[in-house]
């Protein structure tokens, strides 16, 4: 049984159980996402993928809301775009990563979405999250100052790697992805796995930098 849905003014067909995000993707409509990942269970936490559904008091998360027959969806209305901007701005406001020093650089999904939504320096003044760099493990480096609590690493570890290394601790603004009793990551089970690293949208998880290898090429000399 096909469901008839109006997506940005166009009638499209969808399947029961399909999410708004899946329907949009199938029809070539690009909705930004952060906590969502096709290989992981939905979470709905970041709220970047919100869309407008006519008749709904609030915007709805497209990554977890199933379509319904007769639904009228706007994925890029002014209200939606403004909300997405504010959400990304909020994430940037407490994020203390410095883009020009970050290994993730142009690969960073947060940075990419911020650019697409035209979000510059956040207007919000809020304390930043500062945590010490965790570089004790030779296999994985963790810099939680760059973490945006999308929990993709937690789900990747639980659902894909089946290791249960990460968990969420504390509450509210202080919530944090922890290992055991909130210790720097250096566990037996973490060796050689690395499954979570590519799931991280920012530079919070990375492969430790190899500093001992010889770099070929000329030293950088600046001449005037």
């Amino acid at each position: 049984m096909a469901l008839l849905v109006t997506l940005n003014g166009t009638q499209v067909r969808g399947r029961p159980g399909q999410t708004i995000l899946e329907l949009a993707q199938e029809n070539g409509v690009d909705i930004p996402t952060l906590c969502h990942h096709a290989d992981l269970s939905p979470l709905g936490a970041c709220r970047v993928c919100v869309v407008e559904v006519e008749g709904s008091r609030t915007l709805v998360g497209s990554c977890h809301t199933p379509i319904a027959d007769g639904m009228v969806i706007h994925t890029h209305s002014p209200k939606v775009l403004e909300s997405r901007r504010v959400i990304v701005e909020l994430l940037l406001a407490s994020h203390s990563g410095v883009c020009y020093m970050c290994d993730k650089a142009n690969m960073c999904e947060l940075r990419k979405i911020a650019a697409e939504l035209d979000v510059g320096l956040p207007r919000f003044q809020v304390r930043k999250h500062y945590y010490p760099l965790e570089d004790v493990s030779p296999y994985i480096a963790r810099d939680l100052t760059k973490c945006i609590m999308c929990r993709r690493c937690v789900r990747a570890c639980n659902e894909v790697a089946k290791h249960d290394v990460f968990a969420i601790a504390y509450r509210g603004f202080d919530s944090k992805i922890v290992v055991d009793f909130d210790q720097p990551i250096d566990k037996e089970v973490c060796r050689d796995c690395g499954v979570c690293i590519p799931f991280c949208p920012t530079g919070a998880l990375s492969q430790p930098r190899e500093t001992k290898t010889e770099k070929k090429g000329k030293p950088l000399v600046v001449t005037s």
């Binding site: 709220r47 504010v86 909020l90």
Partner: peptide, 25 residues
């Protein structure tokens, strides 16, 4: 509200904290 936010979604987790800091100022 900031102390009692569960912290799962961005607008509440970050937004209440921004409001606290703004009101303090």
């Amino acid at each position: 509200l900031a102390e009692e936010s569960c912290g799962k979604c961005t607008p509440c987790r970050e937004g209440t904290e921004v409001m606290v800091e703004t009101m303090e100022r």
